[in-house]
């Protein structure tokens, strides 16, 4: 097994600084966040440009080229509801350090993003849901199978579909947490890759609590076989936990300085 893949989530248009940088095509704030995340241990960087209905293609191209040219073609996860913007991003994407990730498809309205990934030899994040949250693991597995078949039918390798179990907020859905973990185990038993927005589980919790919950969740999810997460690499506790779990899982060889590399 390879190392756990952290997709850094901090280049997101929901942040006012990033939003403004994207609007004015100012590279500095974006490159700063990119560097912080890379230095902290992110493997991929998520680039969320929002719905980007207008000018999304130009914006995604600019973002991809700006980030990749500065950071040795770091692999990126292209995150927007605008399909044309994702395609435009991929058209200028350098894949020497890893395939682009299409973020994201589901078994409902966004299922065609699987086709997009297949046509562009990309990885796709495949949310195991259709409309709203799946009611149980049978439903999740049904969507997973549907998307897997669709991708393979289009010539994708199964390892290029990263299934998202959908982490659920603990405050309000505490009784569903073990079910999500059990689904991750099911995916792992099938040899499938998985990823998802980890920090959703600690949503609405106090700031000082979130790293504790996030890192506990990631450790439990990694035990179940989670192979990646969209997360905040600048959260030291989280990254220490991931690195330690990678050592315990024998995903990476231990050295005394393992937390520093």
């Amino acid at each position: 097994m390879g190392k756990f893949i952290v997709i850094g989530e901090r280049i997101h248009c929901i942040s006012p600084v990033i939003k403004q940088a994207m609007d004015t095509r100012d590279p500095a704030p974006i490159l700063k966040r990119a560097k912080e995340q890379i230095d902290a241990g992110a493997t991929y960087l998520d680039v969320n440009i929002g719905p980007a209905e207008k000018g999304g293609e130009d914006l995604m191209k600019w973002a991809v080229q700006t980030i990749q040219s500065e950071f040795d073609n770091i692999p990126l996860c292209l995150d927007t509801a605008n399909k044309k913007a994702i395609e435009a991003g991929i058209s200028v994407y350098n894949r020497s350090k890893g395939k682009p990730i299409v973020n994201s498809a589901d078994a409902g309205d966004r299922i065609e993003n699987i086709d997009l990934a297949a046509a562009n030899d990309a990885i796709v994040l495949a949310l195991c849901s259709k409309a709203g949250i799946s009611s149980d693991n049978d439903e999740r597995m049904g969507y997973c199978q549907e998307m897997l078949e669709r991708g393979m039918g289009l010539g994708m390798e199964p390892e290029d579909l990263w299934f998202d179990p959908l982490f659920l907020v603990i405050k309000g859905m505490q009784d569903k947490q073990m079910e999500v973990l059990s689904f991750i185990k099911d995916l792992a038993d099938m040899g499938l890759n998985s990823s998802g927005g980890l920090s959703n589980c600690s949503n609405m919790m106090p700031k000082n609590i979130r790293p504790i919950i996030d890192s506990t969740m990631v450790a439990m999810a990694m035990f179940c076989g989670l192979t990646s997460a969209i997360a905040n690499p600048s959260d030291l506790r989280l990254m220490e936990t991931i690195r330690s779990a990678d050592v315990i899982k024998n995903n990476t060889l231990y050295a005394d300085s393992y937390l520093e590399i």
């Binding site: 060889l253 231990y254 050295a255 005394d256 300085s257 520093e260 590399i261």
Partner: peptide, 14 residues
């Protein structure tokens, strides 16, 4: 000693 082998490389690169 595989762990030391890796550690030495880390230290030398640092």
């Amino acid at each position: 000693d595989i762990n030391l082998a890796k550690q030495l490389n880390v230290l030398i690169s640092q």
